[in-house]
């Protein structure tokens, strides 16, 4: 990176000061606190506590329920990521192809991006309502008694469905812009070489979209793990019960509902390590992407 620069002693410090001070107070300090309190068992009021070393972590790994929640989080993340990517891609390919109404379709397929996850959760609650929710009735028509909040798998299905709905638009937007940035010459050449449109897609278009897809993969995993909090909290109506939940929701349940600061902090640290691994992976991919282009 060669760039003509100003050299001024105090100016950059001044410019960076707001950002860096906010980051120190509201990022590094809390992150450090999370690490620290994961080694303690503390009275929520702050009167007493015991240093317990790694006990909070061992407790988690020995807890069958924590492993079960991890497994659900995995299934949830895979399903949400896969289906929202697939639907986003499908709609993007079609919207790129049609001539009539292209911009209308584009608008209609992307606006849900602006819907807040808990709002999506409320829509989900009403569609999957016990007894007379529309989708509940649809299931009843096919002979399955769908009961959200009772049946673990039904509840899991509803959470996944709503989370997918919320995530399709962003994938659609990225895929569509990826498709539209494919140079015309390549498209035309492909048209001539390959008559079958599905083969053309898999041999030419899809590889060109791969960098976008990689980027979206990480974005979607992050979404499924963290940003679905609102969907889950609203759809479970703050009653964990025997319902499925994600690891992020569990951090909240133990820390805020249960007052178990140490256990909740240990879970936070585990999530931090997970995200860290994911981001390093992402940075390496981006680096390679730069080599590609």
């Amino acid at each position: 990176m060669k760039r003509a620069s100003f050299s001024n002693l105090w100016m950059p410090v001044l410019l960076l000061l707001p950002q860096v001070s906010i980051i120190f107070v509201f990022f590094y300090w809390p992150a450090f606190e999370a690490l620290k309190s994961s080694f303690y068992l503390q009275d929520p009021f702050g009167f007493s506590g015991t240093f317990v070393g790694l006990d909070n972590y061992f407790t988690l790994f020995q807890n069958a329920e924590y492993l079960r929640i991890s497994l659900f989080t995995l299934v949830f993340t895979v399903c949400v990521t896969f289906f929202s990517l697939a639907l986003g891609l499908l709609f993007a390919v079609k919207a790129d192809k049609v001539i009539r109404g292209a911009s209308t379709y584009k608008t209609l397929l992307m606006w849900v991006y602006a819907v807040a996850p808990p709002v999506a959760g409320i829509l989900g609650v009403s569609l999957f309502y016990q007894g007379h929710g529309l989708i509940t009735q649809l299931f009843a028509f096919f002979g399955h008694e769908f009961v959200i909040g009772v049946n673990y798998y039904d509840t899991g299905f509803a959470l996944i469905a709503v989370s997918i709905w919320k995530q399709v638009p962003i994938n659609f937007i990225f895929f569509l812009s990826g498709l539209q940035s494919v140079p015309r010459s390549i498209r035309e050449a492909a048209m001539i070489d390959n008559r079958s449109s599905s083969r053309r897609f898999w041999t030419i278009t899809f590889p060109l979209l791969a960098p976008t897809a990689f980027f979206l993969l990480i974005t979607n995993i992050t979404y499924a793990m963290f940003d679905t909090f609102g969907v889950i909290d609203v759809m479970l109506r703050s009653e964990p019960g025997n319902n499925p939940m994600t690891l992020t929701y569990k951090v909240y349940v133990d820390g805020f509902r249960g007052g178990d600061l140490g256990g909740s902090s240990a879970q936070s640290v585990i999530l931090m390590i997970l995200v860290l691994a994911l981001t390093i992976f992402q940075f390496r991919l981006i680096e390679r992407r730069i080599h590609y282009t």
């Binding site: 016990q130 009961v147 909040g149 009772v150 109506r237 009653e239 019960g241 025997n242 319902n243």
Partner: peptide, 9 residues
């Protein structure tokens, strides 16, 4: 019958 953990349900 049991309608889940929610009180109102």
């Amino acid at each position: 019958e049991w309608y889940g953990t929610g009180w109102g349900d």
